[in-house]
Nucleic acid binder design. Sequence first.
DNA 1: AAAATTAACGACCGGTCGGCCGGATTGTTG
DNA 2: CAACAATCCGGCCGACCGGTCGTTAATTTT
Lengths: 212, 212
Amino acid sequence: MTFTADGRLVRGDRTRAAVLDTAVALATEAGLGGLTLAQLADRLGVSKSGLFAHWRSKEDLQLATIERARMSFKERVVAVALSRPAGVGRLWALHEARLDYLADDELPGGCFFVNAQFEYDARTGPVRDRLAEVLEEWLALIGRLADEGVAVGDLRPDLDTRQLAFEINAVGVATVYQSRLLPGSSAMTLARTAVLTRLRAVCTDPALLPAD
Amino acid sequence: MTFTADGRLVRGDRTRAAVLDTAVALATEAGLGGLTLAQLADRLGVSKSGLFAHWRSKEDLQLATIERARMSFKERVVAVALSRPAGVGRLWALHEARLDYLADDELPGGCFFVNAQFEYDARTGPVRDRLAEVLEEWLALIGRLADEGVAVGDLRPDLDTRQLAFEINAVGVATVYQSRLLPGSSAMTLARTAVLTRLRAVCTDPALLPAD
DNA sequence: AAAATTAACGACCGGTCGGCCGGATTGTTG
DNA sequence: CAACAATCCGGCCGACCGGTCGTTAATTTT
């Protein structure tokens, strides 16, 4: 990012930001590969070839879109959880914030990352590799928060935190597609109960978690 | 299906079966929508237009592919579980058979249905609707086997079997893409442990489940 | 063997995709 | 203001998509 003499963002940066925001929203619906440049350009009121002034290829734009979505996810999910004190409450807050993120109307297709990761799990290339890194990062974060919970004394010391991270992520992933494919199946409630039950089973004090 | 005078399958039926088998394998990798007719025809050594002699459109072929995959899944997963006596052991066998199915080398992209359901969860049309029905059918099956477990006395009577079905399915879904995206993460083992732990927690007698 | 039916083919069509190019427009700075 | 670079555009290309057409080859029935 560069700034103009009077401290504003230069035009190109504003355009890039707007394009990436729209790309995230669009990719959440149509998929990261399914996103077409013509569609993206139309939605923005911009010509298709104008996009190539900012990114050399569709792949470059996809990679930039991933980073944009990652920042947004960090602000809206990770930061919310980290604002609470370490322990099982922070872990629970992370799961809840993620469910809120999944339910957001601005991301109509559910979670950007879950969709993209499913789309690319059988492919090869830089986009797939980056998405794999992001998944690893996410699982590591859940594991780290669980480790904190053990250290603080909220969670049993014999807890396998990697196992727990897998299970919490699994619930989130299943929620994404089940809530879209079977709208009446109350996937969100099932997802809340699932993780709440799981955390209670490994918690040293049930009062640390909500009652419902 | 029709038969010839001397009792053999008519040529068209043999072709249709071969096409659908290849379509299932290909769709598991490239997706049900991502499957292209040219690719499918090439793999079979058949011309693209020849496919239109058997199905009126790509959508018709997709719907037929779903039914073929459903039959195969029934034989290889559902039938294996149903061959065991009702109870928690049957439920566990279902999960294990599904994990075996996911690990099969003939289906390189993981589970046909999980991939297809993710691909179509944001779309509309007959293909999406059929995939939603299949998901419902699958969740209902897990729920029914759990109900049997309660009736037999293997599982606690206060168990919410719909909740359990959601969780077991969630583990399977997460396994599909995590094992492909992060090959070293031993997703299969994590998936086994997750459901085993969950079943132990609601089982009346731990001896009904394997020890490991 | 002849007739009838089914199965398969090559060529082609309209449309969409990502990407390229030359030139016009705009914002920024000396 | 002039000059310059950054930004953006219309038009176009080759590749590929699903699908149609008239025709031929293969198989089944008569």
